[in-house]
Structure formats: C-alpha cells, structure tokens
Design a protein around this nucleic acid. Structure first.
Length: 496
RNA sequence: GGGCCGUUAGCUCAAUUGGCAGAGCAGGGGCCUCUUAAGCCCAAGGUUGCAGGUUCGAUUCCUGCACGGCCCA
C-alpha cells in the first residue's frame, strides 16, 4: 500500500478505496468460513441460453426439481427479505437466480447475500419460472464464488458510455454493453467466413514475415524496429504483397494471408496504425476475375452474420471507370487534361475546394477521386483503371494508355479493397521501382523501396496473376454498421 | 497539423448572473420470502482533468497543458 490518500483521513476510507476495501473484506469473510474464493475450475457448466431454452415448456410459476449448473457474472440483485433475486450473465445470455433462506439454510443464504455486483459465481439450481412475469429462473441449491470483483462494475442500468473508457478498458465495455460483445462475435464470424470462402475456392492460407528487411506492397510509411543480434533495422510490414507474389512464382498458384499490417500514419475513424487485411493472389487470373472473387467473399461474409442492412452486396456490384467517376462527380475530364498544369487549371476553374499547387498529375487525380467520388460511393462499387503512376505493382492496361489494370472497391463511402492484374514483367517492375526512387529523392515519403530480391523472383518467371487486398476492419464496420474503426478493433490505438 | 466541443462521486448525469457542488444507481446500516432499473427508512461519499491567472470569492471567466469526441487537412 502507498501513502494514505486524503480520502482516508480520520481513519475512514471514502470513494473507490472504500468500495474496494468493502469487497475485499467480504471475500476474506467467505474464506474465513471455509469457502474457496478462487477455485481452479467449475466443471459441468451449461450455457445460460440452453438453460433458458429448457425453461420454455414450463408454465408461469411452475417449479421443477430439474437441476442445472450455470456460471457467470452477477449483473443485478434484488433483495426481498429472506429471499433474493440475482441476475447472472454469461456469454450466451442472462438468467435470474432465486435465492431462498428456506432452501439454502442460514449460512449459505447470508453468504450468497454478500455477493457483489460484478462477482463471478457458479450455482447449481432447479429449473422454474417465476410466478408473475414468468421469468426463466434457477432456484439456487448451492453456490460457489468463482472470482471476486474487487472493483465496482459500471452502472447496472446506465452502463458505460464514456468512449475513452470503453476503448481503453474494453473489458468493462464488454461487461456493460452486450451489443459490443455481439459485434466482436460477428467480427469473428466474418473472418471465419472469408477464410472458409477462400479455402473453398482452393486457396492455401500462408504466413509470411511481419518483420521485414524491406517494406513494400503499398504506399505508406513503416514502423521501424531493430534486431539486436543481427544489429540491423527491420520494418513491420505495410503489406504482405511481395512475399505472396514470390509464392506464386514458387508455384503455389492460389495463396492468401489474413493478418495484421502496420502503417505509420495518422489515426482516424477509418485508420488504426495496425489493422487486419486479407490479401489473396491467384495465377492465370486478371483484375476482372478478382472483382468476382471479391463479390463472392464479401457476400459470404455478409451471409455469415445474416446482414440485412442498407447495403446491397448482391453481385454484380456497380462498375465504373476512374475517368468516368471523376467526370460524373466533378465534370473534370481527366483524358482531356493529360498534364499537371492543365488538370490543375481545370480543377481550379470548377471551384472544387482542392488545393492544386505543387501536386503532380496522379496526385491531382487521386485528390479528385478521394474528395469528390469516394464519399458518394455508398453502395458497393468498383472503380476501375487507375493512373499507372498510382499503382507501382499493377500491370499497364491492355488497351488504355497511362492507366493500369487496377480497381478499388468502395462501400459506405470508404475504400474496402484494392486489386490489380499483377505486374509480372521484371524489367517493367524494375522501371517502376526506379520511378519510385526518383519520387523519394524528390521528398515523397510514401514510396516503394527498391527490392532486388523481389525482382530476381520475378526473373524466374511469374504467371499472369490477379491479386486483391481486402480491409477486414472496414468490412466489419460496414457489416456491423459501425462508423469508426475503434468500434470494431478490440483494443484500438490510444494516446498514452 | 487546424477548428469546434467535452473532462464534476465507482458509474450515469445536474449545478441559475461568478456566491455553501446536487441527484439516481452502486457501496454502508436497517425492513421486506416472486423481484426484474424491485421497494421503503437512515447515514455517508468530491483535489470539479492538471498548472497558472483574474477576483473578496472560480465547476463557472482567461491562458497553457493532458486526454477524448466531431469536423477539416
């Protein structure tokens, strides 16, 4: 214990210290009475939802001798003299316990009466339905403390609403807010559905390095770390792309990886520094094949949680080209303005609220898309054929000069996926790396480092390949109707 | 990085023009054997985010900082 705080002056504790001391002394009293307060296990527990189901056939007020064992956290208690009602919550639901003096006897009844909100208990009880409301209930025959809550839980009715506390102390959020637990269970189902879908299409799940000597596969700044024994810096991956393509070279033909990527950039409602992505690559396919793959994967994810929201994920999703989308949203014809100065002039003339000074043609095009097109794309949409300069790993378009065979998929006004007909020509890839190197030399901090190992892999021969990256967090946001990534990441990044 | 808003008891929230910081829940002491936001009685619980400033007096006005939220970049 540290120095007594002012709240303990005059020998009386107040506030939180008082509440904790009170709970601690209750546990000590139980222990003194010979009650194990921290047992190693509690075998034979039934999910509360199953006990509730077993209660269905009973009439209101009907009592049985059918015994059930449940365990969970005490969420409410209502004393009534020599009886009490306790609400017990587990991961499947809530059930009412009826504690009676005449059933339990004096000592156990008084012990059970000292159980606090938030305590973890297990009980054996007889199935019944309460008389008035017909509430499914277990009449407690015996109970066991399974874990003492020394700190008070959030308010039993108002719950926990403070967003900061909810995100910093997710355990309290999960205790207080059932819908949060449901959302994260849905997230798990979505992830499982994406995996099952790809497995079913003949893809192999692989794991590639998260600690990489060179980062690549996306345009982003990396986190840097250091290997002590090797005495060299390593990067946390910004994408697994280059390793997965090497597996395609190796003949694995259909591979995917679902895991965390790390990007050293801002935190926002749509960005967490570490986030979950699934990338898949398949030989002999192009980007239009991959559009159908994405539709299938997202449909499977939506079905896995019975999604019935405002978004229509039925295939085929709308397909529109980058040039058409910008033209439609802003009136700017990208094809008619093929250099930065001309495009900047066209943008400025239309008063689109964009700063154009100093931006390159591809940067201007990207601004138009992200500011004027992306927010309008509510229903699932593929935007096709990006400027090649924005796509260092995508193959040049087979028919359209200056464009690449790349799409991004949008829904809910947000990018959820990105795909290419992968660039497989090692000489062309080398040229792209050199262009990135020049951008870096000009001060661009989000460029691709030159990766000779990757180039040599391509030089062994790579089949035509389609590849997709799908943001899992954003997909979960859409399917669970959450507006911020922090609501779908259990422990989001917070300032410390 | 910028703008706006917020931070009061364990939780959820009040507080008039700058004038003794209140309530519900939780917790404590009682009563109550079908309650379910149980109810009734009693007592208690505060460094008003942190540091300064103005003032006789600051939760309130001002400055800075920390953390968070929303919007913008």
């Amino acid at each position: 214990m540290s120095e007594p705080s002012e709240s303990e002056t005059h020998g009386v504790r107040h506030g939180l210290p008082e509440l904790i001391a009170e709970r601690r002394s209750k546990a000590q009293r139980l222990r003194a009475d010979g009650h194990e307060v921290c047992p190693y296990s509690f075998p034979g527990v039934e999910p509360i939802a199953e006990v509730r189901a077993a209660c269905e056939p009973l009439q209101e007020g009907e009592e049985t001798d059918e015994m059930h064992r449940v365990a969970g956290r005490v969420s409410a208690r209502r004393g009534a003299g020599k009886a009490a009602f306790i609400d017990l919550v587990d991961r499947t639901g809530k059930i009412q316990l009826h504690a009676r003096y005449d059933v339990l006897g004096e000592k156990p009844f008084s012990q059970l009466s000292e159980v606090d909100l938030g305590d973890l208990i297990g009980i054996d009880g007889a199935l019944m339905r309460a008389r008035k409301a017909g509430e499914p209930t277990l009449r407690v025959q015996s109970f066991q403390l399974l874990g003492k809550a020394l700190r008070p839980p959030p308010d039993k009715y108002a719950g926990l609403t403070d967003v900061e506390t909810r995100h910093r102390n997710r355990e309290l959020d999960l205790i207080a807010n059932e819908e949060v637990r449901v959302a994260f269970m849905q997230r798990a189902r979505i992830v499982a559905a994406v995996r099952a879908h790809l497995d079913g299409e003949g893809f192999i799940e692989v794991e590639t390095p998260i600690l990489q000597p060179l980062y690549g596969g996306a345009l982003a700044r990396p986190f840097t770390t250091h290997h002590n024994v090797l005495d060299r810096d390593l990067y946390l991956r910004i994408a697994p792309e280059l390793y997965l393509k090497r597996l395609i070279v190796g003949g694995m033909e259909r591979v995917y990886e679902l895991g965390k990527d790390f990007r050293n950039e801002g935190i926002s409602t749509k960005h967490n520094p570490e986030f979950t992505m699934v990338e898949w690559y398949e030989a002999y396919a192009d980007y239009m094949d991959e559009a159908e793959r994405l539709e299938g994967a997202v449909r499977a994810a939506a079905q896995s949680i019975g999604y019935e929201g405002r978004l229509d994920f039925a295939a085929p999703w709308r397909r529109i080209t980058f040039v058409e989308a910008v033209q439609e949203a802003t009136g700017v014809d990208l094809l008619a303005h093929q250099d930065a100065a001309s495009l900047a002039k066209a943008i400025d003339e239309r008063d689109l609220g964009l700063k154009t000074a100093g931006l390159s043609w591809p940067q201007l095009a990207d601004e138009l898309l992200s500011k004027h097109v992306e927010p309008t794309l509510t229903q699932p949409t593929f935007v096709l054929d990006y400027p090649v300069e924005l796509s260092p790993f995508a193959r040049a378009h087979r028919a359209k000069p200056r464009l690449a065979e790349r799409w991004e998929a949008f829904a809910g006004g947000m990018e959820i996926a990105n795909a290419f007909s992968e660039l497989t020509d090692p000489d062309e890839q080398r040229t792209r790396f050199e262009a990135q190197h020049r951008l870096a030399a000009d001060g661009d901090e989000e460029t691709q480092p030159y990766d000779e190992t990757f180039l040599q892999a391509l030089e062994h021969g790579m089949p035509p390949t389609g590849g997709v990256g799908l943001g899992i967090d954003r997909l979960v946001m859409l399917l669970t109707d959450r507006s911020t990534i922090r609501e779908v990441v259990l422990f989001p990044a917070m300032r410390t």
